[in-house]
Design a protein around this nucleic acid. Sequence first.
DNA 1: ATATTAATGCAACTTAGTTGCAACAGTCAA
DNA 2: TTGACTGTTGCAACTAAGTTGCATTAATAT
Lengths: 141, 141
Amino acid sequence: MKALGEILAELSKGGFRITRARRSIIEVLLNTHLPLSAEGLLESLERRRVPANKTTVYREITFLKERGIVQEIQFLHERVKRYEVVFGSHHHHLICMGCKRVEDVELEGELEKYEREIMKSKGFKVLNHTLEFMGLCEGCR
Amino acid sequence: MKALGEILAELSKGGFRITRARRSIIEVLLNTHLPLSAEGLLESLERRRVPANKTTVYREITFLKERGIVQEIQFLHERVKRYEVVFGSHHHHLICMGCKRVEDVELEGELEKYEREIMKSKGFKVLNHTLEFMGLCEGCR
DNA sequence: ATATTAATGCAACTTAGTTGCAACAGTCAA
DNA sequence: TTGACTGTTGCAACTAAGTTGCATTAATAT
């Protein structure tokens, strides 16, 4: 995972401005590390005394997505989309149906085996995937 | 996958009514077999001359979900939810980013290995999962 | 044939996200 | 440090997807 400075330097070099809102949004996403919804992001900004408009938040998310800095996640049990800073390694989520908390998991070996299988049997080239597990966490079982 | 008659008999036995809308919705979902959105379902009904209100469609989907007859799918690249009849065996989807078509895949061996791993390392009991692959189909590559 | 109540349709509403446009504010160069 | 350039923001109004309350309709058992 990248550090704040690195991300800001990259953007700056690209000719983009480091505004108060932009810096704070990236900070919040780096610090929570569990996926936040646009509304959650808005609230976090308010708590930090960096009030922002929801339009700004949505536009900033779009901007950061386009640059591969954040990624969008859609949990099946929710209506809203969530966002998190892209990690070096691809990972997945464990969603507890009891307490609704979300944990990360990294899976060893990943799904490459399946992706090869799919290529062979269907001629379909996999470029990306989503995988989320729903269940009960240790505390809620 | 269940046949129409079986599903209807089951519902009838449960004290639910077999209305024109209900029967048609189940028929459409059985026949398309690829996941349909609520709006798509509405259009299919119109083509069959069984006009239904969108409220009815949403309520029927909820009803069929609660009874384990249909399941809801959320593709990452879309805003809408989609619905399909639950198959005997769990399967996943290949979403072509070119033509937007969706194919089914069944994966051999499934993700049980990962589910056991998650149980061991995190104490998290997996009850369900979603897995979708995004990429390019044979025709679009 | 009729009573019961599940299912429906309508209109009004909510929630999540988007758009156009005028105003504002980082950044660079002088 | 000042200004000019243009990227960024906020507002208000909008769209799309889905939900709700309530009065009406229509499957079904008797």
